[in-house]
Design a protein around this nucleic acid. Structure first.
Length: 467
RNA sequence: GGUGAGGUGGCAGAGCGGCUAUGCGUUCGCCUGCAGAGCGAAUCUAUAGGGGUUCGAAUCCCUUCCUCACCUCCA
């Protein structure tokens, strides 16, 4: 599988010879997660699901930044401890992402639980003279790392001239960034240099090294983290360990809304909770994968509504498959289904292998859906044919993390009972009464599909839509 | 100002030297007691503008214009 690596600006083959170690920069827990976070996390969740489908062992580590100015400020405003804020939003994170059907990572290290590791790393950097202690904290000497700028393709000269940061006289060089900031107020931790808090970048360096070692396979995150966050991580980590940090840097494009980046200041964010209520997990996942991961996608009602239409096709297909009749299959269909499923699957895999091209892979997925629906429409989708399609379709469901809402045995019994009753009424041409039953069933989210000889049904996910 | 990524039919989105995906939408049909869903057909010949290279370019080169992101915390 090839992935575009931001650092080398080329597509690189993922090394699957052993386990695939992935470090994903997670969220700062000072507020609700939004659809932008969701996209990045869904991309990586889908990537790991794809690799795992082929038996590759994936170790995914995703951090929580739980010490940060924003958290502290919020805590002050609310008059609570900082850890209450972070705990609250970590809980809400899992509520949201579990519902989005995101598989749990191997672990979710928190910055506050790795202060020792960070201090050790900073000490190492100070010893190697990559870092120095100043009045306000411990800083990394950017110019000592000659390759600084290699990820973001920035030249240190340009950075200095274009610097809009207020000049901090206590730093040796304006480019230097904090590893440790001295702090008088809580939250703070003791260190060899004095009480304080770690800088943002050091946490990812320390935790990735601890859990995944050096030169791991993939380091990921949103595009907006390339500079300065990931650039700084590289500088620290490679200066400290002397070896390569990560083999592939994979960056996910931003989610915009009506063409503008989502941000708190513009007040145009859509929280995970909100979009789940509006659209549900399947629509959101499909939407997040509908564009190539490296490009930005625009959150718009039209696109989401379009996705609902597609999802209805999938639901229909699924129920046609699982409820197909036991009749004898046409010989040519038995042959054709093998070709069709193989074609779709091969296309699907090829697309995914080619820099995680999910829009193409979704195309292959819908090709199979359409194929099944075509057979169903011409009354040829019988069980023996369905059995050939279902496993492939299920694999695709699993990789995309899509789930058809389940129906309980009781519901099923009731549905079948009502369908029989309706059939009798229809045979007696008592259509009004038959329609009343259909309406009742619809209340349960069940839509009836009348075929020539029998009626089957599908459960439609309730989707509020709009917004 | 610097850096990077882009500009493809009404919309979304592939293709990255020849064979011009795909989906949604729209229109008309089929199916149905009706409806929903489904199916079929038609519609749309699109590749920001201008130069080049080539037998041949959406695909390569030059140039102009435009969009977005990053350069400050950000997934």
């Amino acid at each position: 599988m090839k992935i575009f690596d931001t650092l080398s600006a080329t597509e690189k083959e993922i090394d699957v010879s052993d386990e695939v170690r992935i470090y994903l920069c997670g969220v700062t827990v000072y507020d609700e997660s939004h659809i932008g976070h969701a996209r990045t996390i869904i991309v990586f969740d889908t990537l790991r699901r794809f690799l795992e489908k082929f038996g590759v062992k994936v170790r995914l580590v995703q951090n929580f930044t739980d010490v940060d100015d924003k958290i502290i400020n919020r805590a002050k405003t609310e008059g609570v401890h900082a850890h209450e804020i972070s705990a609250r939003y970590i809980t809400s994170y899992f509520e949201g992402f579990d519902r989005l059907n995101v598989k749990r990572a191997e672990n979710y290290p928190k910055a506050t639980e790795h202060i020792e590791d960070m201090i050790n790393m900073i000490s190492g950097l100070v010893d190697k003279r990559y870092a120095y202690v100043s009045k306000n904290g411990v800083y990394f000497s950017v110019l000592k790392f000659s390759q600084y700028g290699k990820l973001s393709k920035k030249k240190t000269e340009d950075l200095i001239s274009g610097a809009r940061v207020e000049v901090d006289e206590t730093k040796e060089d304006p480019l230097d960034f904090a590893l440790w900031k001295f702090e008088e107020n809580e939250p703070r931790w003791p260190s060899p240099w004095g009480f304080g808090r770690p800088g943002w970048h050091i946490e990812c360096s320390a935790m990735s090294l601890k859990y995944l070692g050096t030169n791991f396979e993939i380091h990921g995150g949103g595009r907006d983290l390339i500079f300065p966050h990931h650039e700084n991580e590289i500088a620290q980590s490679e200066s400290y360990s002397g070896s390569n940090f990560a083999k592939i840097w994979m960056h996910v494009g931003m989610v915009t809304i009506n063409g503008e980046k989502m941000s708190k200041s513009l007040g145009n964010t859509k929280s995970v909770d909100f979009v789940l209520k509006k659209w549900g997990p399947n629509i959101i996942r499909l939407f997040c994968l509908s564009g190539h991961y490296s490009k930005q996608i625009d959150y718009s009602e039209e696109m989401l509504l379009e996705t609902i239409t597609k999802w209805r096709q999938v639901e229909n297909c699924y129920y046609e498959l699982i409820l197909s009749s036991e009749e004898q299959a046409h010989a040519e269909d038995l042959e054709g289904v093998g070709v069709a499923t193989k074609e779709s699957w091969d296309e699907f895999v090829a697309a995914m292998n080619s820099d995680f091209n999910t829009p193409l892979a979704i195309g292959a997925f819908f090709k199979l859906v359409k194929y099944a629906n075509q057979l169903a429409a011409s009354e040829r989708l019988v069980s023996s044919v369905s059995q050939r399609i279902l496993p492939v379709l299920n694999d695709m469901f699993e990789i995309f993390g899509l789930e058809i809402p389940k129906v309980t045995k009781d519901e099923m019994r009731m549905i079948n009972g009502l369908i029989q009753k309706r059939e009798m009424l229809r045979n007696e041409r008592k259509f009004q009464e038959a329609d009343a039953i259909r309406k009742d069933i619809a209340e349960m989210g069940i839509v009836l599909i009348d075929h020539k000889k029998r009626t089957l049904w599908m459960k439609q996910e309730r989707i509020e839509g709009s917004g």
